[in-house]
Design a protein around this nucleic acid. Structure first.
Lengths: 240, 240
DNA sequence: CCTGTCAACTGGTAATACCAGTTACTATAG
DNA sequence: CTATAGTAACTGGTATTACCAGTTGACAGG
């Protein structure tokens, strides 16, 4: 059972699989800008021929690219590069996360930490393009409230925060918040009650969003920050 | 070009691929605790027969499980479940991240935000098991400083922070910090200069770590927090 | 001009085969 | 008896081939 003591410093030989080489070349081409979002990827058969490997090897590489959200594959169509999205990855991992005890609360606390930091980095004033999706989310939320559609309301709530964070100046915060928000979205769609159920609470949420939106629209970013901050803390207190 | 206006609310039909079904079953078994870390996964051929699908389909599912760091595959051996690790995912995505402008600095700022929050959640007092890897990292850093081995020093620095965050009480912060720290590690191994190069700076880092370690070991968690906080801010100022 | 058809793509899946590495059992040499 | 070498039965990695199903675009006929 014991290992041989060896004075020589032989290092274990790391063998790499073919799909990793393919993956590496793709990532390199993307990170150097040779391939850009929107570009069409050659067909699997062409790639197999170019790389001089078999189609299954190519497919495994594409599978990974799909999971990390770098390409969209349309059966019958082809594969297209896109800006990296965390959605596919999240949808796989989310069940593992939420199976943990009290994950919901932890996630909310984490989101509070990040989102408050993100709004500190909002450009001032906000552009119209940044404001527009927020307005839409509010409209959606108002409609859901009237219809008493809890899930739609929760999703609209998420959409509001998503559009808010997308306006942030920090790339990392955007990605991390996208990840967090996606987790929430997954939880809501899965029927978990990370959301407010009572109508008056939903109305309060809507009201908060509207105030934040108004302040942002009229350029009072600082005031909006304070509102959002207390808004998030209110939500957390509610859930605890 | 215009789409037909349809009053009926037909929703697009989402077709799912076989590997997704397999993936789903696996994730479900793991999240419900039926499968636990350390368990051996049946061979690809057995799985193919159980699921009544072909081996390539099984392999694509396993490939994804490998990328999200849920299984270890040993060629010739078999596949074993493990606690989810972000390493494999990071190693694919890292080049994409660092190709962005000023990503290093953003990452450092983000890490500062998270890590300061994480140390607020450190248990008090720290267990010996939590302290031990920190001590090792310090020893390694000291050795690297004497040898003037910049890369080894940087890796030991990372290892110190990694062992610190692993002691935190928050699952999410652990995972996110693991992600961030892995990104740093990747950058260092890639030869990027996210690290301090001058020897006196490295000595300063080591000195900071030693002080933090001493405070933690003697139970003065609060004092350690303050030290770590100013330590991180110092590092950031240096890089800016 | 619109519409349906058809051929040539695309990715999804299956089946099969072979290679290379691991493992465990076994026979053989000492 | 023990330790070694050999062997057989695994494992995953890769390649090949084939067929299905969906998309696309050109083309012919209304």
């Amino acid at each position: 059972m014991e290992e041989h003591k060896s004075n020589t410093s032989f290092k274990p030989i790391a063998t790499r699989k073919i799909y990793q080489y393919i993956l590496e070349q793709f990532v390199h081409l993307v990170s150097t800008g040779v391939l850009k979002p929107g570009d069409k990827i050659p067909s699997e058969r062409e790639l197999a021929e170019s790389f001089k490997v078999s189609r299954p090897s190519v497919r495994e590489a594409l599978r990974v690219l799909e999971i990390i959200g770098l390409i969209d594959i349309q059966p019958g169509g082809g594969a297209y590069l896109k800006e990296m999205e965390l959605g596919p990855f999240i949808s796989v991992v989310a069940p593992l996360m939420f199976s943990r005890d009290r994950f919901d609360l932890e996630l909310l606390e984490f989101r509070e930490l990040i989102e408050i930091r993100a709004i500190e980095l909002l450009p001032n004033p906000l552009s119209a393009e940044a404001l527009e999706p927020m307005g839409r989310a509010i409209g959606e939320m108002r409609r859901a409230l009237q219809d008493n559609d809890v899930e739609a309301g929760a999703l609209a709530d998420i959409q509001f925060h998503r559009s808010l964070l997308l306006a942030s100046n920090s790339f990392i915060l955007q990605k991390v918040l996208e990840l967090v928000v996606s987790l929430f979205e997954h939880a809501v769609r899965g029927g978990r009650s990370v959301v407010l159920e009572k109508q008056e609470d939903a109305a309060q949420l809507l009201h908060d969003h509207e105030r934040i939106y108004r302040e942002l629209a009229s350029g009072n970013t600082d005031q909006a920050k304070k509102l959002l901050s207390s808004h998030l803390m209110m939500v957390r207190r509610y859930l605890r």
